[in-house]
């Protein structure tokens, strides 16, 4: 039964990918890519990667779609009919695919517990997390503590990408003072009422995901995206200016840097206790308590940076000149 679900979802994915290939209306391409993300999130749940599925659902189906739609509103809605030859790419892709399929014949079979991947490193994480870190979610323990340095690198990449987006788009952002106030979706009464009802629970849920990440699926990455989603939906329905009053772009940019600073600062603290960078065991009375404090701080920094990058990216896209009209969304 399990493998039937697995195969069905995979076939759905392939079908969606082909549909994306065939469509020339960019709007439906973007919508299909949202569907693609959602189906792959379902597949990831099935493959036991609940944390990853959570992230994929929040990122792929939520923020990514909004960013792509705003790009469409600023650029073009249709793909020009292709003039170039399709034969050469098709041959190249086909041959590469065949080579890769040939390569898979030597791979361990799906779900094989004796595969090489499961023999090294991972068993140690699984067996040691309980007494070294003392939190149930192994993924969070590996993410924030065992591989904390790795994650710091990833957060820095996100930070850098966020800065780059701001640099690229800052020149063409319209002046907030001269802008004619966009009416946003003021005439959409239903949307406004429902958004008001939902934003509170969304923010609360983001906090839950942020601080419950030690015990269940969740953590800074997911929480950051959900936080950002709450502000993005607010900006979509009530207009960029109103959202800017609630959370000014300036403040977001400070938070953007502050998150990375909190992360690396937590790492630096252990220097003063003659320990390695990002060794949290000195932060608390016992090594385990120290790990807990360290992981919570680090995840908080991650959440802050991720949320700030998403929100500031959205502000940059939505604030472009010419303004994106209300019907474009």
């Amino acid at each position: 039964m399990e493998s039937v679900i697995n195969m069905a979802l995979l076939v759905f994915l392939a079908g969606t990918a082909f549909a994306i290939l065939r469509r020339t209306t960019l709007f439906s391409v973007v919508m299909l890519s949202g569907v693609f993300s959602l189906v792959s999130a379902a597949l990831l749940v099935h493959l036991d990667a609940v944390d990853v599925a959570f992230t994929e659902a929040a990122v792929g189906a939520g923020v990514s779609t909004v960013l792509m739609l705003s790009t469409l509103a600023l650029t073009a809605r249709h793909e020009a009919p292709g003039t170039r030859s399709r034969a050469i790419p098709l041959i190249v892709v086909f041959l590469t695919g065949l080579a890769l399929v040939y390569g898979t014949l030597d791979m361990p079979r799906f779900g094989d517990p004796s595969a090489p991947v499961h023999q090294h490193v991972a068993p140690r994480y699984i067996s040691a997390t309980a007494h070294e870190i003392g939190m149930p979610n192994i993924v969070t323990a590996v993410l924030a503590s065992y591989r904390g340095f790795d994650t710091l690198g990833e957060v820095t990449v996100i930070f850098t990408a966020g800065i780059a987006v701001l640099l690229l788009l800052a020149g063409t952002i319209r002046e907030p003072t001269t802008a004619t106030k966009i009416t946003a979706m003021e005439h959409h009464l239903v949307l406004r009422v429902v958004t008001k009802v939902l934003i509170g629970p969304i923010l609360l849920f983001a906090l839950y995901v942020q601080f419950h990440g030690d015990y269940g699926p969740g953590g800074g990455f997911q929480a950051g995206v959900i936080f950002a989603a709450a502000f993005i939906i607010y900006a979509l329905v009530f207009g960029l200016e109103t959202a800017g009053n609630a959370l000014p772009g300036r403040a977001v940019r400070i938070l953007l840097a502050l998150g990375v600073l909190i992360y690396s600062g937590t790492g630096v603290v252990s220097f003063f206790f003659n320990k390695n960078f990002l060794d949290y065991s000195v932060l608390g009375a016992t090594a385990q308590a120290g790990q807990h404090i360290g992981i919570i701080l680090v995840e908080f920094g991650v959440g802050m940076t991720v949320a700030a990058v998403m929100v500031s990216t959205f502000y940059a896209f939505a604030g472009q000149n010419p303004p994106i009209g209300d019907e474009e969304w």
Binding site: G60, L67, F221
Partner: peptide
């Protein structure tokens, strides 16, 4: 998990 967020 981290790659997805870096990806976006």
């Amino acid at each position: 998990l981290t790659a997805i967020v870096v990806g976006i």
